[in-house]
């Protein structure tokens, strides 16, 4: 498998980042709740910055509800940010390989969205989200080809058949004319993957794409995604709760906690040398396939919290086993580069 490529700088991503995100923020108003004023906000994504090189896979891991899907949806313009910027530099399709002009995501108008979707796709956490229950599997996967005007009818049939085979739905003939509800959970997930990859995008947000697959099918899909990345220089933002999957798919991993990225490093470095107390807790809680093994209780305090108008201090403060008085009285710690390429936001790291 590939070796991690030289990772771009955490914030500016250098000149040739495919995607550069700076200060990305998304707040959802808390409306008409019985308990809150309507002026409260869920700080789903709070001042997040990172960059992705062409062909790079960045893993995004973190607690359920910490904002991963929201980051993903912002990147493919399914949500508009409250503040912050996203810049793309897609490879131009006509000139051989050269990078195209930089695009500011906020300037992509609805009329340009079709061209944007040709480049940027999302595999949804919920495979139903990208599927119309009345469409057959063939129509579901061929739709993006049709929308983009790619290929003739017969050519589309060939492409759909080929990608079905590659995601392990064989023989394709027995799946083409079924409807999404006539598939198992993992089969549906593979259709969602096929649909996103069939038009050859440059950037894919993959939101828990293999969570319902057994190890064997997952291995096949992961190799497929990596082959395509190498062949066509696809970059992935790979959202997953499964660190073992991230280990195989991702060059670097970013760890989120309550709307903030708290640690970012090359994959093996992060797994071997986690610096943030949340990352440590996460790694210690990974289950092991042995009935005699009991995992330790993760070293984390208290209960899950909601990011509704959080106090300005470290987001992890309430649950941090090593928090100090300093942490209590100071703002959320900034991301700092501890060793080259290893960034962490913690006063005690």
């Amino acid at each position: 498998m590939q070796t991690p490529m030289a990772a771009p700088n955490q914030t500016d991503g250098g000149q040739d980042a495919l995607v550069a995100v700076s200060g990305l923020t998304k707040r959802f108003p808390v409306l008409k709740s019985l308990f809150r004023q309507p002026s409260s906000f869920i700080h789903a994504v709070d001042d997040v910055s990172f960059a992705l090189a062409p062909g790079e896979s960045l893993g995004l891991v973190g607690e359920s509800g910490c904002g991963k899907t929201t980051v993903g949806k912002l990147l493919v313009k399914l949500l508009e940010p409250t503040s912050g910027g996203i810049h793309f530099r897609f490879p131009s399709r006509d000139a051989n390989g050269g990078s195209g002009e930089p695009v500011d995501a906020s300037e992509i108008r609805s009329t340009d969205l079709r061209a944007f979707r040709r480049q940027a796709q999302m595999i949804f956490q919920d495979p139903y989200e990208s599927m119309n229950p009345r469409r057959t599997i063939y129509d579901t996967i061929a739709e993006p080809l049709a929308v983009q005007g790619i290929g003739s009818m017969t050519n589309r049939v060939d492409r759909v058949t080929e990608i079905l085979t590659r995601v392990g739905l064989t023989p394709p003939s027995s799946f083409l004319f079924r409807h999404p509800h006539e598939l198992s959970g993992g089969q549906r997930q593979r259709v969602a993957i096929a649909r996103a990859l069939v038009i050859g995008p440059s950037f894919v947000v993959a939101d828990e794409p293999t969570s319902m697959l057994d190890v064997s099918s997952r291995t096949g899909i992961m190799s497929l995604m990596q082959e395509l990345a190498q062949q066509y220089g696809i970059s992935y933002l790979y959202i997953t709760h499964d660190l073992a999957v991230a280990r195989y798919m991702c060059h670097r991993i970013a760890v989120m906690y309550l709307g903030k990225i708290v640690e970012l490093a090359e994959t093996e470095e992060l797994l071997r040398n986690p610096l943030h107390p949340y990352t440590r807790a996460l790694l210690s809680a990974v289950p092991v396939p042995d009935p005699r093994f009991r995992r330790d209780r993760p070293d984390i305090l208290g209960d899950l919290t909601l990011p509704i108008d959080p106090p300005p201090r470290c987001r992890f403060y309430d649950r941090c086993p090593v928090a100090t008085d300093f942490c209590e009285g100071n703002p959320h710690p900034p991301m700092e580069e501890q060793t080259p390429g290893h960034w962490v936001a913690c006063y005690e790291a």
């Binding site: 973190g62 607690e63 969570s211 319902m212 709760h241 996460l282 809680a285 289950p287």
Partner: peptide
Amino acid sequence: ADEPTTALDVIVQD
């Protein structure tokens, strides 16, 4: 329980 924790991080899952 049919794959009840596929969308959960390991701490919440635990």
